[in-house]
């Protein structure tokens, strides 16, 4: 997957979750998004689901898929790369 896509995913996370004062280079592409790392929760997850669909046309159908997809920025970019049309 391209560095460009990883950057886009980071920016999408910052924009959709309204994370103020954070730049893309402050997000580790391999760090966990939930719990440790960015400390996201299931409310954030649904916001990311909608953002991914809107920005990339990619659907995360359920929480089970989401727990894999939202493991890290890199896993999100990987899923988008595989599923976008």
């Amino acid at each position: 997957m391209s560095d460009e896509l990883i950057e886009k995913v980071k920016q999408m996370i910052i924009d959709s979750l309204r994370i103020e004062g954070m730049a893309t280079d402050e997000i580790d592409a391999d760090a966990p998004l939930f719990g440790e790392g960015l400390g996201l929760d299931s409310i954030d997850a649904l916001q990311l689901v909608v953002a991914m669909e809107k920005e990339f046309g990619v659907v995360v159908p359920d929480a089970a898929t989401g727990s894999t997809v939202f493991a890290s920025v890199r896993s999100m970019a990987g899923y988008i790369g595989e599923h976008r049309k």
Partner: peptide, 12 residues
Amino acid sequence: SVLTKFNRWIDS
């Protein structure tokens, strides 16, 4: 920050 997240959703 649960209410802030609800508000964010409502705005979007």
